[in-house]
Each structure stands twice: as C-alpha cells, then as structure tokens.
Amino acid sequence: MTGIRQTSLPLATGVTLNVALAGDPANPPIILLHGFPESHRTWRHQIPALAERYFVIAPDQRGYANSSKPDGVEAYAADRIAADVFALADALVVDRFTLVGHDWGGAIAWMAALREPKRVARLAIVNAPHPQVFQRKLFDDPGQRRASQYIRFFRETELDRAPDKTGLEQFLLSLFGEHLQVTVPREEQAIYLEQWSQPGALTAMLNWYRATQIVVPAMDEDPPRPSWIDGPFPLQPQPTLVIWGMRDRGLLPCLLDGLETLIPDYRIVQIRDAGHFAPWEKPEEVTSALLEWLAARPAQ
C-alpha cells in the first residue's frame, strides 16, 4: 500500500490543501513539509520508502502548486501556516505525528513542534535554520548575511506582478543556477514553471518572505539588535534530527553552530556533497538518515 495518492482537503483554517498520501493509515503518521519554491514533490524520493512503515502525509502548503492561494501578505504569517499543519492532521483524524520539514517547511516545523509538543512526537529538519540561530547569524556572521540578501530581493521584487514565461524561466535560472548552483532536471523545470504559472502562485510564494518577521540587514546596515536572539530560548522538546547539505550556498553550515545547546535530544547528519535541496540532490542519503533515525528513536 505504498502508492502515492492525491486528495484535496478543506481545512478549518480556511484553506484547501492538495495532499499526497501514501502508506497504510493504520501505521504511525509522518507529515512532510516542503519549502520554497517547491511542492510535495520535494519528497518524491523519500515517500515510497517511508510509506512502507509509515502513513505519509505530504501537502502542497498554502500558496503553492495545487493548494489555496489566499490574498494578502498577512495570510502567509508563520503562525497561520503552522496552524495548517495541525488542521491537516485533524482533517485526517491524526493526533500525534512525526514532523519533517525542508527550507521554509523546516521553519514552520521548528515553530509547530515548539508550540504543540504533545502532538509532534519527533522532529526532523533538512537545511532549515533554527530561528534564534538564524537571526543571530544574520547580525553576527557576514557570510550568512551576504548569502541571505536574496530574502530582501524576494520581499521587494515586482517579478510577481505580471510574470511571463520568460521572466519565470529567468527566475528559475537565477535561483537554482546562479545563486544556489544546483542543476534541476529538465522534466522538473517544466513542473516548476507550470506550478509557478498558476494565477497568484508566484505572489503567494513570495508572500512567505514578505510576511516573516526575520530581520535581514543590508550589508552596510547596522539596525537595532533584536533582544530575543541573545536571551534564553525554549529548548526543543522532541527528539530532533537535523540533516544538512553542507554545500548549501544560501543557508551556510554556520547555522549549525550551537544547536546542541538548544536541543537536548539532538542528532546531526551532514551530507558533504549535497547543496540546499538535499532531498532530491542526494535522495538515498536523506532517506537512509531518516529511516535509521526513526527506527532508533521510536515515537513515545
């Protein structure tokens, strides 16, 4: 029962998500959250293997692919997106689950796991920085500040106002080829362009960046330092696996600094020759790391 099936689920949060499901619903549930600028296909290589032992739930998050694209920047505030995770679990009559997130999906996973530890049994993160570490490095590490200037561009760009095929193709080339230096298979390029071409899609995707409260200083800027980045931060209550593609050019390995002080039950797997999109750049390594850790840390 490992075939992937897709369904459209209206949620109590007011959005309808396209969701890929695989595996036996009687098995332990695991929710996979993709990031920018993708869809549930981020996990296309992991889903079949996970579905042999788990009930896999992989949504297109709000604003992406075949899910709802509500209007307004405020609709993409992190707390609203995190609420979708629990509303999705409720819609599938799932109480406690393992949560896995990549990129923006990881940012939401960090938040959701902290807020609802009784429901999130285990947490796995792939190339997504811990919020306190990320904000601190944006102030203190010139390399990470430089690597994150794309966030300022995404907030300010007008590319999404009237995107055309040429503009979207250039966006794809700039993001993957020039900034991240990742080669996207041609068949996947076509899928990206089709998803991004849907009405409102590019605006919705960029609104995740416009809605975030993370401060990204310009290289020559010295803004006030947020007090919360130097004070105590809640410890991560779940067993947590962090998988990191060490050749990520947007989220640098410095973002791993100090994680062991924030996560009592912590394991790190570094994939030396993977970049930002480790789930499909090095799928076997990511799948193996997930399966081995899940087996070693059964949900309580």
Rank of each mutant, 00 (worst) to 15 (best):
L92Y: 13
E169C: 09
R152G: 10
A49Q: 10
P239C: 08
R119V: 02
P131Q: 03
W196P: 03
A121E: 15
E194W: 05
K165C: 02
Q61L: 15
S67R: 06
V85W: 08
H276I: 02
I125Y: 08
T7Y: 09
Y54G: 00
Q6H: 15
T42M: 14
W244L: 03
A112S: 15
I268R: 14
Q270F: 01
A82H: 03
E281P: 02
G231Q: 10
E221G: 02
L33T: 09
P283H: 08
P37Y: 07
L9G: 09
V73P: 04
D164M: 08
W110V: 05
I47N: 07
R53Y: 10
R186P: 01
Y54M: 00
L252C: 01
A295D: 14
A109G: 11
A49E: 15
T13H: 06
F97W: 11
I81Y: 07
E38L: 14
L92P: 12
I30R: 07
H45R: 07
E178A: 14
P279V: 05
C254T: 09
I268V: 15
F154W: 15
P234L: 08
D90A: 13
A274S: 09
D164K: 12
V126T: 14
M246Q: 12
G167C: 07
Q170L: 14
A78I: 10
I151W: 02
V15F: 06
P223W: 00
H179C: 05
L206W: 04
G105N: 11
A274D: 04
M1D: 13
R96T: 12
K69M: 15
A274F: 03
L180P: 03
T13M: 03
P199E: 07
T287P: 04
L114S: 12
T13I: 03
S227A: 15
D257W: 03
V215Q: 04
F171K: 03
S288K: 11
L262V: 01
G250W: 05
D164N: 15
W104P: 03
G250K: 05
A295N: 12
G35M: 02
V269W: 02
Y64Q: 04
I214E: 00
Q132L: 05
H179N: 14
Y150A: 05
F171N: 09
Q149A: 05
L138K: 00
R122T: 13
D79A: 09
E260G: 12
D265W: 07
S227P: 01
L172T: 06
K118M: 11
R225K: 10
H45N: 13
G105C: 10
S174V: 05
